[in-house]
Design a protein around this nucleic acid. Structure first.
Lengths: 143, 143
DNA sequence: CTACAACCTCCAGCGACTAGAGGTTCAAGA
DNA sequence: TCTTGAACCTCTAGTCGCTGGAGGTTGTAG
């Protein structure tokens, strides 16, 4: 549980070794103590913190949002509204992305339906791309 | 229509000037002729090609896929099945991303519903992140 | 004591742009 | 014809969140 090498921590939390070093570099994880030979040694606290980070990344939170969430956990008496707001903001961005991707899906399906499988010259797919006015919907860039 | 400067082309097609130079650099656009002072001059063919690229990017196609689609337009007698396959592959990836984002949306909504708006100590959002076993679903990384 | 797996640091690369520095050219108005 | 200044040029570096490799060092099991 304590005094884990970086490889052991990596296996426990399912985060790759270079990623752990990267998180330390950008200040998401504290610099752990080292052995005499300068190898990192981690404790239970690091396991929790890295798990938190991993779960948040799995949920698609950006590193900056995770940084804010982590700083909230250090203030357990403060109200949790800031956490609420971070999650809501993320939810809204997920919903925007879903909406955009659904528009995209519709367009791509139409393109495939319209294709008559002849030569490229007659291909609706290519024509739609070449002349965008033929398509059915407007849509913004997908992030 | 012909002999456009890069800025005029940019306005016509709604692609930023540095992006046009970038497309030239990676070989999506051919190197255009230059004035004596080494400024780029574009013709109608470039307008079409860049429009094609922009529409395909708007639909979320990767640059490599666009490269393949462009090379197909140069072979108008060949069958359009390769184009078909590229679009299908892209559609499938869009569908996978939608499915993942929908799982995410569900989880984020649950987190917000569970939050009782007390202090951080009692915040379900923070607890779920700290102890992932409490959450309802498994999900992979979002790309 | 010897192997050798695992560790270390530093740097480069991914994708698709975007921005800035520092210098040159074009074209319109005086 | 000259001047001004917007638009152009090249080159480099930064974005995000890692990931991989080179080349060298350390920890530990046998």
């Amino acid at each position: 549980m304590t005094n884990l090498s970086i490889g052991e921590l990596s296996r426990q939390v399912a985060v790759k070794v270079p990623t752990i070093r990267y998180y330390e570099q950008i200040g998401l994880l504290p610099s752990p103590p080292r052995t005499e030979g300068r190898q990192r040694r981690y404790g239970a606290e690091d396991v929790s913190r890295l798990s938190f980070i991993r779960h948040a990344r799995d949920l698609g939170f950006e590193v900056e949002a995770i940084r804010e969430l982590l700083s909230l956990t250090a203030q357990p008496d403060q109200p949790c509204e800031p956490a609420d707001r971070i999650v809501l903001r993320h939810l809204e961005s997920v919903e925007r992305r879903i909406a955009q991707l659904e528009l995209l899906r519709t367009e791509l399906r139409h393109m495939l339906e319209d294709c008559r499988h002849g030569p490229v010259r007659e291909c609706r797919i290519i024509q739609v791309l070449a002349d965008h006015d033929e398509c059915r919907h407007e849509h913004g860039r997908v992030s």
